[in-house]
């Protein structure tokens, strides 16, 4: 079975510039790798597998070609893990605020 069918949401990959096409003066870790791009859209080809050359129609209706990278691409950024360095701040500052209010009242 093909990885994606016509009309399905997919993500394509393109190499925009190979390392030797990138401008001079870049830091070497940047200059030594290609300049790449990923774009989402709806598959125009009847069906395709990951790695195939395909065409997509983007969200604004433009046709762009590239290599099929992913079918049904998902957003996977999240809320992260609880950070112990942050968890106690709330109670610390509430106590500090209370203390400053009590100090103030004593002065009055």
């Amino acid at each position: 079975m093909a990885d994606a069918k016509r009309g399905e949401l997919v993500q394509i990959h393109k190499i925009i510039l190979e390392p030797d096409q990138r401008p001079d003066g870049l830091p070497s870790p940047t200059k030594s790798v290609p300049y790449e791009c990923w774009i989402k859209g709806f598959l125009i080809d009847e069906e395709a597998n990951i790695g195939d050359d395909v065409k997509i129609e983007t969200f604004i209706g433009r046709e762009i070609s590239g290599t099929l990278y992913q079918a049904n691409p998902t957003y996977d950024h999240n809320f992260g893990e609880p950070q112990k360095e942050l968890l106690s701040i709330g109670n610390e500052v509430k106590k500090a605020l209370e203390k400053s209010q009590n100090d103030n009242e004593e002065k009055i």
Binding site: P23, T30, V33, Y35, C37, I39, F59, Y75, D76, H77
Partner: peptide, 23 residues
């Protein structure tokens, strides 16, 4: 930045997700 990609696509934009570089 991944959240920004999501937001732009939520508003219907075509988004090009690029690697690092002044290009």
């Amino acid at each position: 930045i991944l959240e920004k990609t999501r937001a732009c696509e939520a508003y219907g934009a075509e988004v090009w997700q690029l690697t690092v570089g002044p290009e």
